[in-house]
């Protein structure tokens, strides 16, 4: 038995190929390589580029025979066409979820803006930022600006609303261009 066939047998054993199948493949390969050698033909002429990689060759052959599971499914063009609707469905679900979340955020922003209309915060400087910290005072003694409880919820709401609407418009433009390109 050639070194190549021996390496294949080891790989088939490692992959759990049933002995009768492994024996059959090994016998066929051995007989072919013997005949090629007798004809003065290099193993590369029989095995192609696989002649340099017995493990991959053995795994590919066993997979093709269906005696070991495929390590990583390589989709053909036909299979890929079937997979395409699944991918599109996943993308669509993702897009709908993202759009719903964005719309909810926009409504929150709008609600904040409307509810706090006219309640623009008054920020009042209580004391200037100290040049040095007196002993016993923490480095960051707290805010130096007293908002007086008047957080600018109106501005925040408007900003949130505008940002989400701008994001939605940008996403819609991108999506429509992508759809047009695909068709």
């Amino acid at each position: 038995m050639t070194e190549f066939v021996d390496a294949c047998r080891q790989e088939w054993k490692r992959l759990g190929v049933p002995d009768p199948v492994a024996n059959e493949m090994a016998a066929d390969l051995d007989a072919d390589l013997d005949e090629a050698q007798a004809d003065g033909v290099a193993a590369e002429e029989v095995l192609g580029s696989s002649a340099f990689d017995p493990r991959s060759f053995a795994a590919e052959w066993a997979t093709a025979r269906g005696v070991v599971p495929a390590p990583a499914p390589v989709t053909t063009l036909v299979e890929d066409r079937h997979a395409e609707p699944d991918r599109n469905r996943r993308n669509r679900t993702l897009a709908v979820t993202a759009a719903t979340a964005a719309i909810v955020l926009a409504f929150i922003g709008l609600a904040l803006a409307v509810r706090h209309r006219g309640s623009v915060a008054v920020a009042r400087v209580v004391r200037p930022f100290p040049k040095f910290f007196p002993p016993g005072v923490a480095k960051f003694p707290g805010p130096f600006v007293d908002h007086g409880g008047g957080h600018d919820f109106h501005g925040l709401g408007v900003l949130l609303f505008l940002a989400v609407v701008a994001g939605l418009i940008a996403a819609a433009v991108y999506w429509s261009r992508k759809v047009r390109t695909n068709h």
Binding site: G48, S50, F57, E60, A64
Partner: peptide
């Protein structure tokens, strides 16, 4: 048609059989 540089025919034959 030389097989040099090409993959082996054995896996392909197995697929045709399957």
């Amino acid at each position: 048609l030389s097989m040099v540089g090409e993959g082996s025919i054995y896996p392909l034959l197995a697929r045709l059989e399957r």
